[in-house]
Design a protein around this nucleic acid. Structure first.
Lengths: 325, 325
DNA sequence: CTGTTAGCGCGTTCAA
DNA sequence: TTGAACGCGCTAACAG
């Protein structure tokens, strides 16, 4: 049985093996130029030989810089969340930082805010140089390192935030539907506690008002960005006396629900019912016929977040706190 | 502009504010019972008031125990990966540990092995108490804390490993297809460098041999667990002089490719072609008609990994290194 | 019951 | 160019 209590190979071990002092090893590790080429080379070989990796905790504690960026996500499996992570990962490979992720599973909103703050503090300063929080419920974080929020629940959080262009996207969807001749357009909202959901709804309303079209409260159903709820919403819409000819779902997962409910009713898409989603998730491609959807540039939000956090870590001043995509 | 160089609130600040020594604060933080109730209560209030969260790095460095488990995944977005994480998350909420995730994006296999080892060392001992590695390319990790591998590429890695029951599952699929009367069954392999893919292929072959059925090399197409490749494989299978009446795809993502290629050819499922997958991913439900698939219990592998790593952290001895699910 | 002291592994002065 | 000594924030040992 392997013993796990054995010592990790430290800078001391390297120093001893190389016949130099620990500070010399430290210099080599940090690429300082005040070391003799031979010493440098020799120490570097010993490091490689012993497979020494410097202790992150000790390093961070001393230098207040770890080279690690953290990201806190509300869930693990959602496509939204995974897509953001993809963007973050892509951006991080291009710079000299490492990434750790924390997800707190599916928990209630209040607990969520508490957890977010706890984790930001926990990893803050010691393990990470900055943190990205996805759809945070909390608004203020006590930190010694920068925080960037992606699509925060609160409209104006006490940190830098990236907001997706939910409003413009909604206008775009409505414009195309109206152009197709639709007059009664149903709308399934997202989880209205999220800013994104609120903005999309406002876009829906505003475009109808702007175009001088019918505005019927019955056509607006309160969803929550999930498929099952969207099925319910669609059933209600389709059983109206004067049902809509098109349905605008606040995200693609909801659109999937619309497809399912339409199939129940024996409605064909798009002949009997037009469906438009929002997000442009990869999963949309499984739907037949193909879903019309709005690209939310979720992936870009991830890379943008990295870009911002790195600037903040470097101490650059950013005039605006809100960054729209 | 907020300053990020400000000091985090330390145990010293709390001690000063509470009028006690730092060790007393430490005792309260760690729930030691050798403190007077009033002192205890008072210090706890000051801690809450100052929003002090103990520095993870310093704590870990001293006590060699952080209460954090790490998991290293080869990618962020794959369903396999996300499903494992779901299982891990579920299990971790039931015990008193926190979780951090590291993913190294899409990189080559060689680089992958290097990255895995680097990250295991980086977070090892200082930040985490143990680490779970998903489908690792590396086989030996220099660590001072336990390692559990999930579906390692190497058959017998130098650490505890969880292996899914790929072989039995494949036999099960074949048995049901043969029972349905199929005689020519096409097979699309997974990424053969993975043990899982190899085992499923062996299961396919063995069941044919056992039942004394036709064995045709043309019916085996080399895939890689991805949808686009599976489309190519299916095209080749369907353009054979004597095409298969059923296709067994090594995973659900490949099965999706089979669906797409079948549609191209105008084949109906299951009337003209039977399709069976492997994994039972949630995404299978989007396919119409519903995909027949084998449950790989991926989620259970995640929770099993947590169970194992916690036992190892606690110093329990486990007789077997290989754990099948 | 509480305070003092000594490191954990590392980076960073300051001397040599 | 290199080495010795100090401290980051914390816990564990010991002393009171």
């Amino acid at each position: 049985m392997k013993r796990y209590s054995k010592h990790a190979v430290t800078i001391h071990d390297v120093a001893e093996a190389a016949g130099v002092s620990i500070s010399t090893v430290s210099r080599v590790l940090n690429n300082k130029d005040d070391a003799a080429p031979e010493t440098y080379e020799h120490v570097r070989m010993v490091i490689e030989d012993l497979e020494h990796v410097s202790n992150l905790a000790a390093r961070g504690m001393r230098s207040r810089h770890t080279g690690v960026i953290g990201i806190i996500k509300p869930d693990v499996a959602s496509f939204y969340s995974a897509t953001i992570l993809r963007g973050v990962n892509q951006a991080i490979t291009e710079i000299n930082y490492d990434l750790i992720v924390y997800t707190n599973g599916d928990i209630s909103k209040n607990a969520s805010a508490y957890q977010e703050k706890y984790y930001v503090s926990l990893f803050n300063g010691s393990v990470i140089d900055g943190v990205i929080v996805v759809t945070p419920a909390a608004t203020d974080f006590s930190t010694t390192t920068p925080v960037v929020a992606i699509d925060p629940i609160n409209e104006s959080p006490d940190c830098h935030a990236i907001i997706s262009n939910n409003y413009q996207g909604a206008l775009q969807v409505m414009s195309s539907l109206i152009k197709l001749g639709h007059r009664r357009i149903g709308f399934i909202t997202g989880w209205l506690e999220l800013v994104s959901a609120e903005r999309r709804l406002t876009g829906y309303k505003d475009s109808l008002i702007a175009e001088g079209h019918e505005f019927d409260e019955d056509l607006i159903q309160i969803g929550d960005y999930t498929t099952p709820t969207a099925v319910e919403c669609t059933r209600r819409l389709l059983s109206l006396d004067n049902p809509p000819t098109a349905i605008f779902a606040s995200n693609d997962m909801s659109a999937i629900g619309v497809y399912q409910a339409a199939e129940e009713k024996g409605l064909r898409i798009p002949e009997d019912l037009s469906v438009v989603g929002f997000d442009n998730l990869r999963e949309s491609m499984f739907l037949s016929p193909q879903l019309t959807t709005i690209d939310q540039y979720i992936e870009e939000m991830g890379s943008k977040a990295i870009e911002l956090i790195v600037k903040l870590i470097r101490g650059e001043e950013l005039e605006d706190k809100l960054h729209k995509i």
